[in-house]
Each structure stands twice: as structure tokens, then as C-alpha cells.
Simulated scan of single mutants.
Amino acid sequence: MLLTLWLSGCVTAPKPEAAHSESQRQSLWKTHQQQLKALDDWSLKGRLGLRVPGQSGSLSLEWQQNNGQYLIYLDGPLGQSVAKIKGQSGAVELEASGQRYSGVSPEGLLFELTGWDLPVSLLRYWVVGLPSPESDSNIQLNNQGYPALISQQGWQVEYLQYKDFSGVTLPARIKVRQGEVQATLFARSWELK
């Protein structure tokens, strides 16, 4: 037992990461932002935890983005298809429970069908770690120059973890919330094209 304690005392703690100055973080963010803005064809697979007043659950998520067009698959337990959302600017189509619905915006269509007010159009940017260019935002950067928090249109987007995917650092865990609505995204894989 004494040997174990002695050996554990010999293990060196990892050196804390050197703190960057604000100007260094801003410079890192500018470079990273340019890299992210070049991503217009990607796919993401992961899990989405959703909590809205009176309900909560977890869904499997597959999101394919190609420029302004997107295709999102949401599956429930045991791979059961919950919804397929296909859209582009000004038009969205949702398939669920054998029914097909269409609308002008994903937010409007989702609210009409569920009563949930979720910023689907903004998520396209938030999932890659960018604020939407459509409105003002406030960004707090972490020490590596990546967003730790984006505040936009009353929503708080907290970046809890980043990972390297195909040579690009992308969010692996995100929490989006406003009031009683909260969504947590766990990215298992990114494919960049």
C-alpha cells in the first residue's frame, strides 16, 4: 500500500495550458472562423437530447448539409424513424408518422406541429461553432480561440467539448437553451466533403 502511495506521488500532473492573451484568442478565432465558413458540405451524426415544457427525450440525429440545402433524420429508440426534415431557404418539408407537411421555415413548421419554439435555422451555424450571420451575437472565446458561449436571439449556446474531425476542430458537445427549452447535441462523427 505504501508503495502504491509512493508511486502515485511520483506521477506528474499535466502542465496547465498556457493562457493566451485576448488578442491571441481573437487572432486564433479569426483563423478558425475562416476555416469554418469554408465548410458548406458536411454531415453530422450524433444524439440530440431535448427538454421542452412537459416533455423530454433523446433522439438519434443525422444531419446532411450541402450549401443552403439540408436533410435531417431524427430516429427514436431502436432506430424507429421519428421525422425527416428536408429544406432550403424559403421551403421546408417534414415527414412524420406517414404524413407529409410543408412550410416556409423549419421553425414555423415545427411550432405549428408541436408548439415548440426551436431555432432550427440558427442551428445550422451553431453546430459547426459559428454564430448565424443573420443577426447580432455575443461570443465568449475559450483559451484556444473557439467559442465557449454564443448568445444570439435570446438563445445561449454553450460549447462543452471540441474534437478534431478530419483535421478540423469542431464541436462535439453543445447545449442550447432559452427559458425552459434545452437541447443538448452530442456529435459522434463529422464528415467533411
Rank of each mutant, 00 (worst) to 15 (best):
V11M: 14
L130A: 04
L39H: 00
K45A: 06
Q161T: 14
Q144L: 08
S151H: 00
G76P: 14
S58M: 13
V157Y: 00
W190K: 03
E191T: 15
K86W: 14
W63K: 12
E112H: 10
S27G: 02
A91R: 13
L39A: 01
G46N: 02
S105K: 02
H32R: 11
S27A: 15
L130K: 02
I72C: 06
N138H: 02
Q182S: 12
Y162P: 03
L36N: 01
L48E: 05
Q80C: 03
Q99Y: 08
T4L: 15
Q35L: 08
L170I: 11
S189H: 07
T4W: 04
Q99D: 15
V181I: 15
P14T: 13
Q88Y: 12
G98I: 07
V127C: 14
K193N: 13
R188M: 09
E22F: 03
R100D: 07
Y73H: 15
R188P: 02
S56I: 11
E107S: 10
P77R: 15
V104F: 05
S89Y: 08
Y73W: 11
N138L: 01
S166T: 07
S81Y: 04
N66T: 10
E158C: 00
L78P: 01
E191I: 11
N143M: 07
E95S: 10
L123F: 09
G46Q: 01
L74D: 10
L3E: 07
Q35M: 05
T169M: 12
Q69W: 13
E180T: 02
Y70C: 06
P171Y: 12
A187R: 00
W190D: 06
L122M: 09
R25H: 01
A19I: 09
V128N: 11
G115C: 08
E107Y: 13
I139A: 00
Q33I: 05
